[in-house]
């Protein structure tokens, strides 16, 4: 099929960017979206032009590196699908497709479609862990964890940290990302000793990084490639209130 792409080009963080049009001819429906971009890039290189920079690595929907806003929707808006797993069979011949980077104050553009997501790492530094040094852990079965709790923890832990939640939120809020980590560890007994510090520290850092507030648009849940539920945000709010009361 033949497509027209409108791709965000921006040389670096300082310069201004703009949308540039490219024709993408003879695209196979079996290609993934990134393979389609590979083809476009190969043709740009052949013409001596600079290829489009985009982040990607595993290309199987798990590393969280790929990060494109496609036609206004993070990862293209198909249920439970990252950009790298989106296939061209979902587009039609003649389509005009707009491709942009994640847009958020906390994720500055590095180049073209590549953004800086280190703010997420700093939120985890602020408490998204269980302090347990290597060596000396008790037998893994010493503390039974009800299956239901383990499953709920896993639902939250499935987050790949891609940032689609932030990119899709009108407020640029990172609540779903932060809540996923808080909720994962709050559902496991191993996470309990530090649960108050954790939620307070992470929420504080989230605010420092310039992420916006949650006003229940629920766009984040809709685009999350791992279908992390906004019920975790409610869980985090409860954890936060509990911790604030303890703190007081």
């Amino acid at each position: 099929m033949n497509l027209t792409l409108r791709i965000w080009r921006q040389r670096n963080a300082q310069e201004r960017g703009s949308l540039v049009s490219y024709e993408a001819k003879d695209i196979s429906p079996d290609m993934s979206f990134l393979e389609m971009l590979d083809v476009v890039n190969e043709r740009l290189i052949a013409k001596g032009e600079e290829p489009v920079a985009f982040d990607h690595d595993c290309r199987e929907g798990i590393c969280g590196m790929c990060s494109l806003v496609i036609n206004g929707l993070a990862h293209g808006g198909r249920r439970a699908t990252t950009t790298c797993q989106l296939h061209m069979r979902h587009f039609k011949d003649g389509d005009v497709i707009t491709v942009e980077p994640w847009r958020s104050r906390a994720f500055p553009v590095v180049r073209d479609l590549v953004v800086d997501r280190t703010a997420f790492d700093r939120v985890i530094h602020a408490g998204g862990f269980v302090s347990s040094n290597a060596g000396g852990a008790p037998d893994a079965n010493a503390l039974p964890v009800p299956r239901d709790d383990a499953e709920k923890a896993m639902d939250a832990a499935a987050c790949i940290g891609c940032g689609a939640c932030v990119a899709s939120c009108p407020n640029g809020s990172a609540m779903l990302f932060v809540a996923a980590k808080v909720s994962h560890l709050a559902h496991l007994p191993q996470g309990h000793p530090e649960r108050a510090q954790r939620v307070l520290g992470m929420v504080h850092q989230m605010d420092l990084e310039g992420f916006g507030n949650c006003t229940n648009h629920t766009e984040c849940e809709a685009v999350c490639p791992k279908e992390v539920s906004i019920s975790h945000i409610a869980k985090m709010n409860r954890e936060f209130i509990r911790a604030s009361v303890l703190e007081a």
Partner: peptide, 11 residues
């Protein structure tokens, strides 16, 4: 070690 770190293994 992994269980102590909060890895949600299947149960």
């Amino acid at each position: 070690q992994c269980v102590a770190m909060g890895v949600p293994f299947a149960r």
